[in-house]
Structure formats: structure tokens, C-alpha cells
Amino acid sequence: MSLLLDVVLKVVVVLFAVLTGFAYLTLLERKFISRLQARIGPNRAGPAGLLQPLAEALKLILKESFVPSRADKFMFFLAPILSVIPALMLFAVIPFGNNDVLQLASHVPVGVLLVASIIGTAVYGIAIAGWSSNNKYASLGGLRAAAQVISYELAFGLAMIAVVLMSSSASLADIVTAQFGGGILGWFIFRQPLAASIFAITAMAELARAPFDLVEAEQELTAGYMTEYGGMKFALFYMSEYIKMIALSGLFVTFFLGGWNGPFAQEFWPLSLLYFFIKVLACLLVMVWVRATLPRLRYDKLMAFGWKGLLPLALANVVVTAALIVSGLPGYK
């Protein structure tokens, strides 16, 4: 029984932290993009706009729950749930810090595979939303999402395989410890720069965020798969996108930026949590920065880039990494 209680407590605390993080990430993104575009951003609700997420949540809860008349009602309700649950599940395998409680389930020997399977099933929410809305824009958005995720999943997985090769373990806790030696140069971003950049690009494609947001390209598809959604159901899609942003940043930190490790983090665990938080925040800010900077790709370019560019590169990277490890080069085993 105490095990059950332990698990439930961890889940509640992580969910609370993640949902608060989501709420303030939306505010952070709006503020940061506003600054980049020489605007001020939301500043009316509360001091410096700090209550803005609360106001938005209240507004969305109070909206009418609307279902299009020819939609498939059951699937229409199920789709937002199917999209938010995988996003939350990703946090189970991310080690947040150097502490038994903060490591959560990151010791499972198949952590990387779990990440791949959760990311793979996350697309159903979007695809089903597009199909069940009975709207041509939504259907096209859902189809695009399915095609895009399948195309970029391969390079995404191969980038993770390079990390697994480097740390000779598929558990995320071991991947962090494999980056201990050699100070900052021990981080896999310096030993696996290609895998790191492929992971970053494909992660943004899996998120369907700018410059890969063809799934909801306003000019062509109004709002893509979300066209018919409003109120809390819309909020759930929004939530899943931002939660996945946080989760994938956490994965990038764990795989390439040394995880929770930093000066004195191994001796004093609160520092490790702080380092993890700072690193994730840095990744999130880069993502927002990219969104504010780069224009959207054309659809055929997106597919060609994924299949003809990233996939062969990632494959070659795995082969070269394996060869380097077998040859016993210093820094590669």
C-alpha cells in the first residue's frame, strides 16, 4: 500500500508542477515573442501580466462546449484526451535531479524505447481530432500531422540510438551518469553534435511547432485539426503542445546537456534540480526564439528534408559512432 501511495504522491506532484509550468510557459512565450517584435505583451492581468494564464483558463472554462452537428461525437471528445495523456506520460522517465524521488522511473532499462513509443502514439490525438470534426481543413491538418510525425520519427529515433550507443544503456538515469567525466566537454552535445542537432530539429517537427507547424498553417488550413474545437477541449490541445515542449526540452537536457549534473549537484540534490530547471528553461527559450525567427517550411520541402536529409545523416551518424566506439577512440569509451 505504501508503494501505491508513493506513486500516487509522485504523480500528483509532477502533474501539478507540469501544469503550472505549462501555464507560465504560455505567458513566457508571449512575453518573449513580444519583446523580440518590439511589443510589450500581456501586462494587464495582475502585476506585469502574471495572472494572465489564470484569466485565460477561466475564460476557456466558461466557454460553451460545442460539437459540430455531423461530427463523430465520441471521437471528438476522446481526441483532446488522447493528445494530452502521452504528453504527460513522457515525464515518468525523465530524471529531474540527483535524488531517489526526483529520478522518478528513469531507471527502467528501456527508457529510450518508452520515449519512442510514447512519442509515436501521441499523434493519434491530432489525427483523430482531424477525422472526427468532419471538416475539410481539420481532416487535412490531421493527415499532415500523421505524415509529418511518421517521417520525422525515424531520424528522431536514430538520434536517440547514437546516445544509447555512447552511454551503452537505454535508461535515462544511466545516460546522465555517462556524461559525468570531463566537465562540460563530457556532455553529449560536444561528443555527438550531429545527433544533438538532428534531435533538436526532429523534436520541433514532432511538436509541430514553427517552422514545422504545417499541421495548423493558418493561411492554408485556418487552424488545422483544431478548427472545430473551442473552450476546454481546445485548451487541452494547447496544453498538450506546451507540455510536450517542456518534456522534449527535458529529454534534450538529459540526452545532450548532462541532465541534472553541474557543479556540486552530485553532493547536494537541490542544486541538481535547479540546474535541470535552468537548462530546460534555456531550451524552451531557444524554441520560442526559433518560432519568432524562422518562416514556415513548404510541405514538399518538409518531407524531402526529413527523408532525404535528416534520415541518411542520422543513419550515417549511428554507423560512424559505432565504428568510433569499437575503435576505442578516447571520449568514445
Binding site: P109, Y124, A127, S139, L143, I150, E153
Partner: peptide, 25 residues
């Protein structure tokens, strides 16, 4: 655990996405 994770990643995650894609298309 390995077989379980591969079962979800390959069948539920990759192959069925293609099925759903083709049915929708």
C-alpha cells in the same frame, strides 16, 4: 520490458499510424 516497449513503439506507434493515415486519406 523490452518486448513490451517494442510492441507499443512498432505496432501501436508506427504501423497503426499508417493504417489510420490510409483510412483517413
Amino acid at each position: 520490458p523490452f518486448i513490451a516497449a517494442v510492441q507499443v513503439a512498432v505496432y501501436a506507434g508506427a504501423i497503426m499510424v499508417l493504417f489510420v493515415f490510409v483510412i483517413m486519406l
